[in-house]
Write a protein that binds this DNA or RNA. Structure first.
Lengths: 224, 224
DNA sequence: TAGATTGTTAATCGATTAACAATC
DNA sequence: TAGATTGTTAATCGATTAACAATC
């Protein structure tokens, strides 16, 4: 009943509410939330109603209460632990991202096939050898994993993760994982996103006379 | 007429065709392509028909010709140049990603506000100060940009990019950019993806008795 | 011909939007 | 009351799927 998009939007609303709370705002109307979230007022209401939260037309939504309501709806009781496989450049970026900022997820274990990295502490997280993957994931009761390994290793890593009991995978490898249906996969494929950007901005230029990209500059474009 | 999803799938098909070609496969049927792409045969045909490519039921699609046809449809004449703003952990990961592998995009210029990085060459790409952003983007005729800066800087960086003539932005900052409609934005928001994973895998466990994550292990889960 | 594959049309599905009544 | 906001219903829209005829 709750779609992926709805959950995504709810987590966006939460971020906005967090900012508002930091600014000392106590209540917000759906149209204000909508303006910040880039959605329609109606869609915001729809999402909030889906989690059982009703607004009042006199005071709007109480920022703290709404934020708490979203938290209760989206989050597990505790911070969710995540396993990271692949401590290359991207892996390190992810580690620093999740240790610097306090989101609802912590990388509880990192793995890499490079023996040179084993036992080393990278951005505050110990890097384990791949052989320990199944054991540590089970011991730590980790349900989610991030795949940040090269394409050629992604599928086999994913299968090991599933066998270890992982229920959800965030896949950064630009390849399609073939896994049992019970496993949820979120793909983050920047090559695909860039292709989309290339394609649609190119078409826009063609359709609209090629003016966009250069309307702010006087100099002509000479690619040579 | 061509949707974002279609373009995304086409670039996936291309990757699959590339692999097939490397394996020495000369022709492929839509149902084989569908199996590899996790789609239905009909949807594959639909996508390929959208770019004017028809299959034959005797020989299927010629792998090289189809790959070329997709390339012609999706790509500009040349490799597309991309600007990168933010040469932190993530920025470095992106640089190494795009220099190691040959995709259709090259990071032609990198920018960072940290004076310590200015002039340094990071993963083969010179890091420029932010002051040069507009000039270099115009000089190099760059149309796409990647934002890999912290949330608090993302909006202002995005506006500068748009003013410099950027038509499409790949945004890694977990925040919503408010930009003119003419600018296309692709958001890559891993916090949102993780929230989705948490939410839906949690629900699955509840619905199905909490068995999934541990069906391969004997030990009980004791989170303490 | 028989069988697999393809192409076309209509049906379905989910999400978003529009219109309007109800509320504060 | 008047005005802004909310909640409900029906309409729209796009993408996916299903059914079936056409093709090789």
């Amino acid at each position: 009943m709750i779609s992926r998009r709805t959950v995504g939007r709810l987590s966006l609303y939460r971020r906005i509410l967090h900012e508002l709370a930091a600014e000392g705002v106590f209540s917000v109307y759906s149209h204000q939330l909508a303006a910040k979230a880039g959605e329609t007022s109606q869609l915001v209401r729809h999402d909030l109603m889906a989690i059982g939260y009703r607004g009042k037309s006199t005071t709007g939504y109480d920022v703290h209460a709404l934020s708490e309501s979203i938290r209760e709806f989206l989050d597990a009781e505790t911070e969710e632990k995540v396993a990271l496989v692949g401590v290359g450049n991207l892996g390190r970026a992810l580690l620093s991202f999740f240790t610097t900022r306090h989101y609802n997820h912590v990388i509880a274990a990192a793995f890499d096939s490079d023996p040179g990295k084993h036992g080393r502490i990278v951005v505050g997280c110990r890097c384990h050898p791949m052989e320990c993957l199944e054991r540590i994931i089970r011991e730590e009761c980790i349900r989610l994993a991030i795949i940040a390994v090269p394409v050629r290793e992604a599928q086999s890593v994913a299968m090991r993760l599933v066998d270890a009991g992982i229920a959800g995978i965030l896949n950064f490898a630009p390849t399609l994982l073939h896994l049992p249906e019970k496993v949820m996969v979120e793909d983050i494929d920047m090559t695909m996103s860039l292709e989309r950007l290339s394609f649609f901005t190119r078409n826009h230029n063609i359709q609209e006379g090629g003016g966009h990209a250069h309307e702010h500059g006087d100099e002509r474009c000479r690619p040579d």
